[in-house]
Amino acid sequence: MLQGNISRVTEFILAGLTEKPEFQLPLFVLFLGIYVVTVVGNLGMITLIQFSSHLHTPMYVFLSSLSFIDFCHSTVITPKMLVNFVTQKNIISYPECMTQLYCFLVFGIAECHMLAAMAYDRYVAICNPLLYNAMMSYQVCFWMIFGVYCMAFIGATTHTVCMLRVHFCKLDVINHYFCDLFPLLELSCSDTFINEVVVLCFSVFNIFVPTLTILSSYIFIIASILQIKSTEGRSKAFGTCSSHISAVAIFFGSLAFMYLQPSSVNSMDQGKVSSVFYTIVVPMMNPLIYSVRNKDVKVALNKFLERKCFL
Rank of each mutant, 00 (worst) to 15 (best):
I92H: 02
M144N: 14
V282W: 15
M118R: 13
I109R: 01
C162N: 01
R165A: 13
L185S: 02
F193M: 00
C169A: 07
I207S: 06
H73T: 13
Q227I: 02
T18A: 08
K170W: 07
P26Y: 05
A256K: 00
I174D: 05
M151G: 08
F68M: 13
T157A: 08
G16N: 01
V297I: 13
M258E: 13
S274I: 04
G271K: 01
P287H: 11
F220Q: 12
A119V: 04
R122T: 09
E196V: 02
F104I: 02
V197H: 13
L215W: 10
M268C: 03
L181E: 11
M258S: 14
T157F: 03
A134N: 08
S67M: 01
F310K: 15
I92S: 08
V198Y: 02
V173N: 14
Q24F: 00
D172C: 03
E19P: 04
I109N: 11
V61T: 15
K303D: 11
F153H: 06
L27F: 02
N5A: 13
L215K: 06
P58D: 03
F28C: 06
F257P: 04
K80H: 15
I225L: 02
Y177E: 04
A110K: 08
H176M: 12
Y218L: 05
E19Q: 15
I109W: 14
L184T: 03
G147D: 05
H73R: 10
H244N: 12
N42M: 00
Y177D: 04
I280T: 12
S254D: 11
K298W: 10
I145P: 04
Y94K: 05
V173A: 14
I77T: 04
V173K: 14
S246R: 12
G253K: 01
L115K: 11
I34K: 00
V282S: 13
Y94G: 08
V148G: 13
C169S: 15
C162Y: 12
Y102I: 01
T213V: 07
P129Q: 07
H73K: 10
I34Q: 03
C103F: 15
L181H: 14
D121A: 05
T10W: 06
F71Y: 03
V265A: 11
G41I: 01
N5P: 04
G233Q: 02
G41T: 01
V199M: 15
C309L: 11
M163C: 10
I154A: 10
Y218F: 11
G4K: 09
I250H: 06
G271A: 02
A152D: 04
H73A: 15
N175C: 08
S217D: 03
M258G: 08
E306V: 01
V83R: 15
S7D: 00
L30D: 06
L187M: 05
S93E: 00
T99R: 10
V197I: 03
G16A: 03
T240A: 13
V281R: 07
S246T: 14
